[in-house]
């Protein structure tokens, strides 16, 4: 087949295949953010907590992962987890673990700043009402910290969405890699790469738009 001109047929033809790739991308993004946020918040609580040893351990963890390239972390978990567990765990699980562990380090720092942005008087008010430390964090401090941090949390989420493209190194077909497969097998590089760019651009713009609306909704402060 001749590769001259812009062939839109190939794009339509490959939609089901690309959609499958996008599903994997979204799955990794959502689970990575969810897990990373939970683990990162726990790390932040450790870093800010009374227990010196925990604070030190959490701090070391964060500094360590923040100095590693993501792709290296992906390689590690892909090759190390089977060694530790003693059996194959599958590319998806190992990559997801890598994302969660890696993102948690960043979310920890975001949440730490978020928690510190909540006025100390708020924590005092919760304490004075008799809330325990955990209740005070859960019902008073963290909801406000999350809200203050939504813009940064979201831009970090968008970075992760883009970073999932790295999973091709362990042979997983995410959106980009799926498009790449089509591009090479059909020799339609331009069509596929432009489509990929448009899709990434639209989805990130949409996410940003939603965040801005969300912030407006929360603006009654």
């Amino acid at each position: 087949m001749e590769s001259g001109g812009f062939d839109t047929h190939i794009i339509f033809h490959s939609i089901p295949f690309l959609a499958k790739g996008m599903l994997l991308t979204l799955e990794l993004t959502v689970l990575g953010i969810g897990g990373g946020l939970v683990f990162g918040t726990l790390l932040a609580l450790c870093r800010l907590g009374k227990f010196r040893a925990l604070a030190f351990a959490a701090g070391t963890y964060v500094n360590f992962f923040r100095s590693m390239p993501l792709i290296l972390v992906i390689f590690w978990f892909y090759f190390l987890i089977p060694l530790v567990v003693g059996e194959e765990v599958g590319a998806f699980q190992s990559v997801l673990t890598a994302f969660i562990m890696f993102e948690a380090a960043y979310y920890c720092e975001i949440m730490r700043a978020g928690i510190q942005s909540v006025r100390v008087g708020q924590a005092h008010a919760g304490q004075a009402l008799g809330l325990t430390y955990q209740q005070n964090m859960r019902y008073v401090v963290l909801p406000q910290a999350f809200r203050n941090m939504i813009p940064i949390l979201m831009s970090q989420a968008i970075v992760l969405f883009q970073d999932t493209a790295l999973v091709y190194v362990v042979g997983l077909s995410d959106f980009l890699y799926s498009a790449d497969i089509v591009a090479n097998s059909e020799n339609r590089l331009m069509e596929m790469y432009i489509t990929v760019a448009i899709v990434y651009f639209s989805m990130c713009s949409l996410a940003q738009f939603l965040v801005r609306n969300l912030q407006k909704k929360f603006a009654h402060e």
Partner: peptide, 26 residues
């Protein structure tokens, strides 16, 4: 502390929940 009410200079109501929820929470 739950037996001692405390009122602060800057009110310190919880901004993310409604008035009634502020009073209900604890």
């Amino acid at each position: 502390r739950s037996q001692i009410g405390m009122v602060f200079q800057n009110f310190e109501l919880f901004p993310h929940i409604s008035i009634i929820e502020n009073i209900k929470l604890a």
